[in-house]
C-alpha cells in the first residue's frame, strides 16, 4: 500500500504568509531609510555651503560634510540593492507558498483514496519533496544574503554615526558660526539614529527563523 504519511517528509518551513508580511515590513523600512538618506544628502549639501561661508574656522566641518554626503550616496546605493533582494525574496516566498498549496491538495487527494494503490505515487511524492526542498533552500540562501547585506549596511551606518559625532566636535571650533554648525551636526546625528533604528528593525525581520 502507498502510505500517504511519506508525503509529509518535508523541511519544516515557517508559514509563508507571515514571511510575506515580513517582506512587506522590510520593504517599508527600506523605503524609510532611502527617504532619510535623501534628506542627509540635502543636509550635507547645505552644510557644505555653510562651512564655505564660515571660512577657515569650519574647514574640518566642511570635510566632514563632504564625507556625510558620500555616506548618504553609498547608503542609497546599498538600500537599492537591498530592495532588489527583497523583490527576489517575494518570488522565492511565493514559489514556496504555491508549492505548499499544491502539496496540501495532493495530500488530501491521496488521503481521499483511502489506502488504494496509486501507481507512481512514490515518484510523484519524491518530485514534490525535491521541489519543496529546492524552494526552501533558495529562500534560506536569500535570507543569508539579505542578512549579510544588512550587516554591511550596519557598518556603513556606524561610520555615518562617527562622522556626525566628529561634525559636532568640529562645530565647536566654528567661531561665530558655531551654533549654526552645532544645529546642523545635531540634525545629522538625529537622522542617523533614525536610520539605525530602522536598520535594527530590518535585521529582526528574518525570512526564515533560526533553526528551521
Amino acid at each position: 500500500m502507498n502510505a500517504p504519511e511519506s508525503l509529509f517528509r518535508r523541511p519544516a518551513a515557517p508559514t509563508s504568509e507571515s514571511q510575506l508580511a515580513r517582506i512587506v515590513r522590510s520593504n517599508e523600512e527600506i523605503k524609510s531609510i532611502v527617504a532619510t538618506a535623501f534628506k542627509i544628502n540635502l543636509m550635507a549639501l547645505n552644510a557644505i555651503f555653510l562651512a564655505k561661508r564660515a571660512g577657515t574656522a569650519a574647514l574640518g566641518f566642511g570635510v566632514l560634510s563632504n564625507e556625510l554626503r558620500r555616506f548618504a550616496q553609498d547608503l542609497t546605493q546599498q538600500m537599492a540593492s537591498l530592495r532588489e533582494m527583497t523583490a527576489e525574496s517575494v518570488t522565492a516566498v511565493s514559489n514556496l507558498m504555491q508549492q505548499r498549496r499544491l502539496d496540501r491538495i495532493l495530500e488530501l487527494a491521496v488521503l481521499a483514496c483511502e489506502g488504494r494503490e496509486i501507481p507512481g505515487l512514490e515518484l510523484v511524492m519524491a518530485r514534490a519533496e525535491g521541489a519543496m526542498t529546492g524552494k526552501f533552500q533558495r529562500l534560506r540562501q536569500f535570507d543569508k544574503v539579505l542578512h549579510r547585506a544588512l550587516e554591511a549596511t550596519g557598518q556603513l551606518v556606524e561610520l555615518g554615526g562617527v562622522l556626525a559625532r566628529s561634525a559636532k566636535i568640529e562645530a565647536a571650533y566654528g567661531g561665530q558660526y558655531s551654533s549654526s554648525l552645532m544645529q546642523v551636526s545635531t540634525d545629522f546625528a538625529d537622522v542617523i539614529d533614525q536610520i539605525k533604528r530602522s536598520l535594527e528593525k530590518l535585521t529582526r525581520e528574518r525570512l526564515i527563523k533560526e533553526g528551521s
Binding site: I105, L108, A109, A112, C113, I118, P119, G120
Partner: peptide
C-alpha cells in the same frame, strides 16, 4: 482535485 482524483483512481490508473 482531491475529489476528482480519488474518484478517478477508484476506476483507473491516473
Amino acid at each position: 482535485f482531491p475529489a476528482v482524483f480519488s474518484a478517478l483512481c477508484a476506476e483507473t490508473d491516473p
